[in-house]
């Protein structure tokens, strides 16, 4: 697109972001401040993720963008089109074909590979923010690896509800050192982060923080020995593809209480259907 640099951001800014990303990769799970730029979309719509994508995107990359697992939601569509126009890169909805996947709220069901990068959009990078309002204090807690307070939160949950009630953005320990917010992905996706072959990058535009998990890094969800971390999913199978293992969205289908459970990962669901799998809804 004329008048814009490749991938929208100027080279100096991309260089600055890459420097911060290198630092982030070198200290897995540690939040690195960066000079977040104004982007042509509002905070909360993925400004952090877009800047990270812009900084790592090359001309021969293939980009996939998902929002809540879906490739066809407004946010995903507009970000994908943004890079198609400002960088001219190829885009795809197929997880297997993508080299860079920018995501909000999900990790694709299909396991990622070493030659892929996943970029998470992060609203609140500080996992302790709800427990300790002072930034200075949370910084100190990270510095000294003092995470007892996070366990107090889990203790309180178990005491009150019999289990840990955090269902998304479930805090993780990265490489046994830093407590990290995995962004608002469902706790269901947490195990996918552990020892993932792909590079995981996180960008928080409003909070001006970047962090990363290098490939094959240990990512452990916090828990107690006698209350181990467990993922939960709706007990149904996908109405479209019949998957009994994928993360499901509940869709209200009419105003008479009709509802349908479908895969939140649209590409995964479509691929399965193309392979001949069918759920109750399609069979009917």
């Amino acid at each position: 697109m004329n008048g814009y640099n490749f991938a929208y951001l100027d080279e100096q800014t991309k260089r600055m972001i890459r420097r911060s990303l290198l630092k982030a990769v070198a200290i897995p799970g540690h939040q690195i401040p960066f000079g977040s730029r104004e982007m042509p979309l509002p905070y909360g719509w993925g400004t952090g993720g877009i800047q990270v994508t812009a900084a790592v995107l090359g001309a021969d990359d293939t980009l996939k963008v998902i929002d809540q697992g879906a490739d066809d939601t407004t946010n995903a569509v507009s970000i994908r089109r943004f890079f198609a126009r400002t960088a001219g890169v190829a885009t795809t909805t197929h997880t297997a074909e993508a080299t860079i996947i920018q995501t909000r709220h999900r990790i694709p069901e299909e396991p990622l590979r070493e030659d892929q990068i996943i970029v998470y959009q992060v609203p609140q990078p500080e996992p302790l923010s709800k427990l300790e309002p002072s930034r200075a204090e949370t910084k100190r807690m990270h510095g000294l690896s003092e995470y007892g307070l996070m366990h107090v939160k889990l203790y309180e949950d178990i005491t009150r509800y019999g289990h840990v009630s955090i269902s998304y953005d479930y805090p993780v320990m990265v490489n046994g050192r830093y407590l990290m917010a995995p962004s608002p992905i469902p706790a269901f996706d947490n195990p996918k982060m552990d020892m993932m072959p792909a590079l995981q990058l996180f960008g928080a535009g409003r909070e001006k923080r970047l962090y990363a998990v290098p490939p094959y890094t240990k990512v452990a969800s916090l828990d107690f020995d006698d209350h181990p971390f467990r993922t939960t999913r709706a007990p149904q199978v996908c109405g479209l593809c019949g998957s009994g293992v994928s993360y499901l969205d509940e869709v209200v289908t009419d105003d008479k209480g009709g509802r349908l459970f479908v895969c939140s990962d649209t590409d995964y669901c479509e691929t399965r259907r193309a392979e001949g799998h069918a759920g109750t809804e399609l069979a009917a």
Binding site: L149, H151, V152, Y155, D225
Partner: peptide, 12 residues
């Protein structure tokens, strides 16, 4: 329990 958890106790 906080001080215990801060010291690494992980058994609820």
């Amino acid at each position: 329990g906080e001080r215990l958890m801060a010291q690494g106790s992980r058994h609820y």
